[in-house]
Amino acid sequence: MMIESPPGWRFFTAVTIAAFISLWWSSVPFPYAEGGVLGLFVWVPLVVYWLIRLSVAMVTGWRTLSMRRLLRWLPTPLIVLGVWGVIHLDGSFSARFALSQSSMEQYARSIIDGGGRTDPGCRWTGLYHVCGHYAGEEEGAPPTAQLNVTDWPLGASRCFTWTPNGQPRPEDHEYGLRHLTGPWWGCRDWDGW
């Protein structure tokens, strides 16, 4: 292994896995706090390692560096910038929610139609594994289906509420409530951070 060459397939595999985890953890109404831990303990060391390798390559092999060899260093920063851009623009959430919305709406409708008389259980609705429950039992609250996202290995601290007749009560979601579209709201429960 020449130090002048970019990190190999093991490094690229680690970057790719970290990218997929980061995109998945940011594809909920409120990104998971664990994404910050991933950034600190995974992304920072990967980027520092890449920068050290690039610096050594520039110092030791600057005479032999060609444009072709320099282009081999580009995949990692392109992945890092791409992941940052998608997360910053809320793209991973928008895509996952758009692909799951109709399936989640059918499930939410069945919960409201049941009026809380039956336990709807947990199931995959589109790209989200959710556990639903009827949340319109309080006085003055509109009928609401709450779908708690269960992204293993994380706790169910992110959720969706579907409220076709109004909006959910903000006091029921003291850690965060975000209007998504139409009767859909994103919510966040306490997650220890």
Rank of each mutant, 00 (worst) to 15 (best):
S5F: 03
L38C: 02
F11C: 01
G116A: 05
L74C: 08
Q101F: 04
T76N: 07
M58K: 15
L23V: 12
V28R: 03
R96G: 02
I87A: 13
P120R: 02
M58R: 15
G114V: 06
S5A: 13
L54H: 08
P29R: 12
G132T: 05
V130Q: 03
T13H: 02
I87S: 04
G114A: 13
W73Q: 04
S103T: 00
V130G: 03
L38N: 04
A14N: 00
W84K: 04
R123M: 06
Q101S: 14
P120K: 03
L38Y: 01
T76Q: 07
G116V: 07
R53F: 08
L54R: 10
G39D: 10
S103I: 01
S103E: 09
S27E: 00
A108Q: 07
C122K: 14
R123S: 07
R117Y: 12
Y32L: 09
L70P: 01
V130Y: 05
M67R: 12
V28M: 03
L74K: 09
L38Q: 06
E34N: 11
V130C: 01
G85D: 11
L78P: 02
W24M: 14
T64L: 08
L40T: 14
R72T: 04
A57R: 07
R68T: 12
V130F: 03
P75D: 11
R63E: 13
I87P: 02
F20M: 10
G8R: 15
L46A: 06
R96I: 01
A98N: 12
M104K: 04
G115F: 08
G126I: 00
D113V: 11
G132N: 05
V42D: 01
S92I: 01
R96Y: 02
H88I: 04
G114C: 11
G35Y: 03
R69Y: 04
Y49N: 11
G39M: 04
I17V: 15
I111D: 04
C131L: 01
L74T: 10
L78I: 15
L38I: 08
W73G: 03
L81C: 13
Q101W: 05
R10Q: 07
G132K: 00
I52L: 14
V47I: 15
S5V: 08
F12R: 09
D113M: 12
L99N: 09
V28P: 05
L74D: 09
T16C: 06
G115H: 11
S55L: 13
S92L: 02
W62F: 12
V86Q: 06
T13L: 12
P29L: 01
T16R: 01
G36Q: 03
W24I: 14
S27D: 13
G35W: 00
S103P: 05
L99Q: 12
T64E: 11
P45R: 10
V86L: 14
P77F: 11
V80Q: 08
A108L: 08
P7S: 10
S94K: 11
T125R: 03
L70I: 10
T16N: 05
G85I: 07
R96W: 02
